[in-house]
Design a protein around this nucleic acid. Sequence first.
DNA 1: CTGAAAGCGCTTACAG
DNA 2: CTGAAAGCGCTTACAG
Lengths: 360, 360
Amino acid sequence: MRGRTRAVGRVRIADVAQRAGVSKGAASFALNGRPGVSAETRERVLRIAADMGWRPNTAARALAGGRSDTIGLVLNRPPRVRGVEPLLQHYLEGMQDELVDHAITLRMQVVSGHAAELATYDQWASGNGVDGLVVIDLRVDDDRPRALQTLGLPAVTLGDPRYTSGLPTVWTDDVGAAHELVDALVALGHRRLARVTSGSRLAYSRVRTDALTEAAAARGLPAPAVVQSEGGSAAAPEATRQLLDRPAADRPTAIVYENDVQAMAGTGVAAELGLDVPGDVSMVAWDSSGISRLTRPTLTVMTRDARAEAACAVRMLLELVEGAPAQQLQAPTARLELRASTGPAPDDDRRRPPLSLPGS
Amino acid sequence: MRGRTRAVGRVRIADVAQRAGVSKGAASFALNGRPGVSAETRERVLRIAADMGWRPNTAARALAGGRSDTIGLVLNRPPRVRGVEPLLQHYLEGMQDELVDHAITLRMQVVSGHAAELATYDQWASGNGVDGLVVIDLRVDDDRPRALQTLGLPAVTLGDPRYTSGLPTVWTDDVGAAHELVDALVALGHRRLARVTSGSRLAYSRVRTDALTEAAAARGLPAPAVVQSEGGSAAAPEATRQLLDRPAADRPTAIVYENDVQAMAGTGVAAELGLDVPGDVSMVAWDSSGISRLTRPTLTVMTRDARAEAACAVRMLLELVEGAPAQQLQAPTARLELRASTGPAPDDDRRRPPLSLPGS
DNA sequence: CTGAAAGCGCTTACAG
DNA sequence: CTGAAAGCGCTTACAG
């Protein structure tokens, strides 16, 4: 069934070369846009290849050391959080947007563990399995940028340059966004903020938490309570309970979640505890999966175009593969979109004096 | 930067063979579990390969006509519905679950258009780019099963056998599920059902709609109103408005959506129209992304393990590649999980005589 | 049961 | 600017 029977009618580069009256090598040069062949020859070869329906054999190309027209993505997640959460969903969509226009394949490998991830990169590098990589889920102590540099594999990441170790990146200014968010909450009378994070070692999570803390300090607010919700959105209810299950004077009046699924879960917990959203506590989601208008109450979110960012990262990667220089591209900063889950802080919060003074 | 420099320290099958004192061919046989080599030789080769850290070069293997340790998935979706909707999300997760255990790569190609999809299959088949395929989004008039048979590409699909043209499949009995659902709605006093579908040509959507219609007829209910919501969840609000924006006597008292995102959107529209869920209208989602417990009201859903189904499909595919016979595997039928979005039909509906008699 | 050889389709130095 | 040849790492008939 498999084996060495060539698919019927499959046209090889040798067929194109013969028909064009040139050598295989010349045809290859023409087809790959390399110098060493006259303009008219190139054009003829191209036309004949199109006529005959030639398409490169990816395996042969890869084996010979050429382009594989494939980019790689490794997903390293423990099974229990292997869900496709909102941000990854947008990233996948954005990558698809760009790939479909370039007839590029996405090679996706799921691994459980850091060692397995590096082994995958090693194998891809040595087998020309991919032309380049998109690296996501950057951590604060990530050694993948360095490993990839050693392997000589072009790679682009999505995340704040301070954690990318020089890897080309598409990023957004979450620090600026955090300040806008805190300003808006302060304007609503909030002083006791809280933050539910996806994981303490995820770079983007860290950047946001740090920025929120700084912004709060700059406005003279007490340091936001920070609760880790490792293990995906499933842990968000527990994190929320931890924050809300205390006397009103201690309770945060606004919680900032990593994404809207977490915020929905948190809103449910608030209801269970007899708290009104936004009457008693305001809820904000940073990343949105697009359901923020559909929830009751509708969710206030930090909006940015993660999908476009991922598309942009892929474009950058393809250019990088072509030899373009590495860059750090800043995408538009997230903007606050106010909806029904946020409102003025509860009255008691406004009547009391600040709990602490500026300058943490 | 790229080119013919072999990655440092990369061990080839020839290195393994030399160290084991056998020919390359013998080593290949041993490594691939084929007959033609003694048990002790095989074991020695295997041990040495492991010691030396040998891993197959995928491209070389593919080119020589062997296993590529890759399975393919083509996503053919117009850009505007290129979102990762709940069902696809579960499928991706389930495929990942199975792939990670087998060190298999997923080759994913996004295309826009049927012709491009078939061209991709053709290229993969002729280049040994994949060992097999998972085919999703089966349509009622799908010619992909036949095309794949012609290409000789092993493939497994997810969907009702009546639309798979003999392709091996993992499927669930949506007809049985529809009957359970209608029974439950009838028990709550509902008589005017409605159905919002993902698309009239999607096989699973068609099966469900037909089954709901049959089940309604069997219970003596009028035929459910059916509204297409092509273009993803974005169209669900419009579809819902169409159903609910009529006099109470004409209005459905229960709407069955394709997934929970649609149902959330529909619930929002009901609120806009001043209708209470479930007081005036009950809402049911067929596929759930896991947020059905988080919405307000919580959503009644048809629960099944789509993730496990996808994992099972991949397992079947890998066995098929190994030469196992094709099969049709029936996964557990979806069960109804009643939550707050469904309740007794509005009173006026019970007081009136049936609108029609059994036997559509 | 094993070895030596050809071949998969392409790219790329190397001569002309 | 072009041709002829070697080689990428593997698999698989074909002889022994």
